[in-house]
């Protein structure tokens, strides 16, 4: 069996980690360069827009991962590979929910105060 499947259980939370790093870093960059003061057409600040885009990209990646893992997880395969696939799927679902819960503040909270 390919040992590459050992990394699968971590994939969901790797996406969560990526979202965390990207959002925290870009929040700091945006605040440093005053992007919260730059208003885009429609009234949204550049800061909020870029943070929302980052979050949505990660939510989409997490969702795709869940759907992809689900196919393997529900297969009638047995043994270590199936175990890893199911653990990976459950972890990816948990990570997707964590991503939504951890970062939903980008839609409303003040970003640089």
């Amino acid at each position: 069996m390919n040992n590459g499947r050992l990394i699968w259980p971590a994939l969901g939370f790797i996406v969560w980690s990526s979202a965390f790093i990207a959002l925290y870093a870009m929040l700091s960059v945006g605040c440093r360069f005053g992007w919260d003061q730059v208003e885009l057409p429609g009234g949204m600040s550049l800061q909020r827009a870029q943070l929302i885009v980052i979050l949505l990209v990660h939510l989409a990646a997490g969702l795709l991962l869940v759907l992809w893992l689900r196919k393997t997880a529900v297969a009638r395969e047995a043994g270590a590979g199936a175990f890893l696939a199911r653990v990976a799927w459950l972890a990816a679902v948990a990570a997707l929910a964590s991503t939504a819960f951890s970062f939903f503040g980008v839609f409303g909270l003040s970003s640089c105060h």
Binding site: A10, F13, W16, S17, F20, L23, Y24, L27, S28, C31, L51, A91, A94, A95, S98, S102, F103, G105, V106, L109, S110, S111, C112, H113
Partner: peptide, 26 residues
């Protein structure tokens, strides 16, 4: 999940140092 999440909450030891509200929310 605990292993990953535990790396994303270190700033709760630093909530009073003056960090933007949004970061505090994360």
């Amino acid at each position: 999940a605990v292993a990953f999440l535990s790396f994303g909450l270190w700033v709760h030891h630093m909530f009073t140092v003056g960090i933007p509200h949004l970061a505090l929310a994360f």
